[in-house]
C-alpha cells in the first residue's frame, strides 16, 4: 500500500516489477516442471534436472498408443461436457427465477444451494457407492455426471444470478408490454443478453468437473468410466521396470491444455465470474 500519493519513482517501479516476477514464477514453476518431465527421454527421466537434457516425444507417443489413456480422456471430456451442459441449463433456469420472479420457496432454494456449496463431498462417497451399485449406476457415466451436476449447481446458480442482476430489465418489461408472456420474455429478450454470463459459468463449471478426483476414484472401478485424474494413479510404465512418471507427466500435460487455453482467452470473464459468485468450484 506504499506510495498512495505521489508519482511512482523508478525504484518503486522496479520493486513492483520484481514482485510481479516472483508471483509469476510462483504460479508457473510446478506447471513448467511437469511439462519438462513429460518431454524427457526415458534415459534422462530420473536425472533430476529441471530442464530436459534430451527432448523427446516418446511419453506422448506411449500414452496415445494405449487404450487406457484414450478411453480415460474420452470419459473425462464426455462426462465433463454433459454435466456442464445440464448444470448450466438448470442453473440458468433457477437463477433467472431467483433474480426475477417472486415465488414461495425462493429463500429455501438459495439456502439449499449454500448448504451444498459447503457440503463435504466425502460424506456422500460411502452412501452413493452403495446406492449406485443398487441402481446399476456404479462405474457408469451417469454415476459421475449426477454428483457433478449437484455440486456444480450452487456455483452455477450464484454466478448466474449475479450476472442476471446486471442485465437491463427494462427491455424485458418492454417485451411484456408488447404482449410477450414471462416465458417468452425470458426466451427472446433475456437469454441473448445473458449469454456471456452463461458462457462464463459454463467455463467455471467445466473446470470444476474436469478437476474432480474424489468421486472419480470412488465411484468408478474400470476403464468404462474412469476419468483422467483417476486413471493417472493406475498408470504403469510401458514395461514393468519402467518408471510411469513420464507417462503420467505427459497425460497430465494433455489434460492441462484446455485449462491453459481457458485462462489465456477468458481471463477477464473467469475473474468476474469467480468474484461475483464468491463460491468456489
Amino acid at each position: 500500500m506504499a506510495g498512495i500519493s505521489g508519482a511512482e519513482t523508478k525504484a518503486k517501479r522496479i520493486g513492483w516489477g520484481l514482485l510481479n516476477t516472483v508471483a509469476v514464477i510462483y504460479a508457473l514453476v510446478p506447471v513448467l516442471w511437469i511439462v519438462s518431465l513429460s518431454f524427457k527421454s526415458s534415459a534422462t527421466l530420473t536425472d533430476g534436472n529441471f530442464i530436459p537434457r534430451e527432448w523427446s516425444f516418446d511419453n506422448y507417443r506411449n500414452i496415445f498408443a494405449t487404450t487406457e489413456f484414450i478411453r480415460a480422456l474420452v470419459n473425462s471430456i464426455g462426462i465433463a461436457v454433459i454435466a456442464t451442459a445440464i448444470a448450466v441449463v438448470f442453473g440458468t433456469m433457477a437463477a433467472y427465477a431467483i433474480a426475477r420472479l417472486d415465488f414461495p420457496g425462493k429463500r429455501l432454494l438459495v439456502g439449499i444451494s449454500l448448504l451444498i456449496a459447503m457440503f463435504p463431498q466425502i460424506s456422500l462417497v460411502s452412501p452413493l457407492f452403495d446406492i449406485e451399485r443398487a441402481l446399476g449406476l456404479f462405474d457408469t457415466w451417469p454415476g459421475l455426471i449426477l454428483p457433478y451436476i449437484t455440486f456444480a449447481l450452487p456455483l452455477a446458480i450464484y454466478t448466474l444470478s449475479a450476472f442476471f442482476r446486471e442485465i437491463p430489465w427494462e427491455l424485458e418489461k418492454a417485451a411484456k408490454m408488447d404482449g410477450a408472456t414471462p416465458a417468452q420474455a425470458f426466451q427472446k429478450v433475456i437469454a441473448p443478453l445473458a449469454a456471456p454470463g452463461v458462457f462464463t459459468t459454463a467455463i467455471l463449471v467445466f473446470i470444476f468437473c474436469w478437476n474432480d478426483f474424489l468421486f472419480a476414484i470412488t465411484l468408478t472401478s474400470t476403464e468404462a468410466s474412469r476419468t483422467v485424474p483417476a486413471a493417472l494413479s493406475f498408470f504403469t510404465g510401458s514395461s514393468q521396470f519402467e518408471d510411469p512418471a513420464g507417462s503420467i507427466a505427459a497425460a497430465a500435460v494433455v489434460i492441462t491444455i484446455p485449462i491453459i487455453l481457458f485462462v489465456l482467452f477468458f481471463q477477464r470473464r473467469i475473474v468476474a465470474g469467480l468474484t461475483s459468485g464468491a463460491v468456489k468450484g
Partner: peptide, 8 residues
C-alpha cells in the same frame, strides 16, 4: 493457472 489446474 493454479486455480484452474487439475489438483491431481
Amino acid at each position: 493457472i493454479p486455480y484452474g489446474l487439475v489438483t491431481v
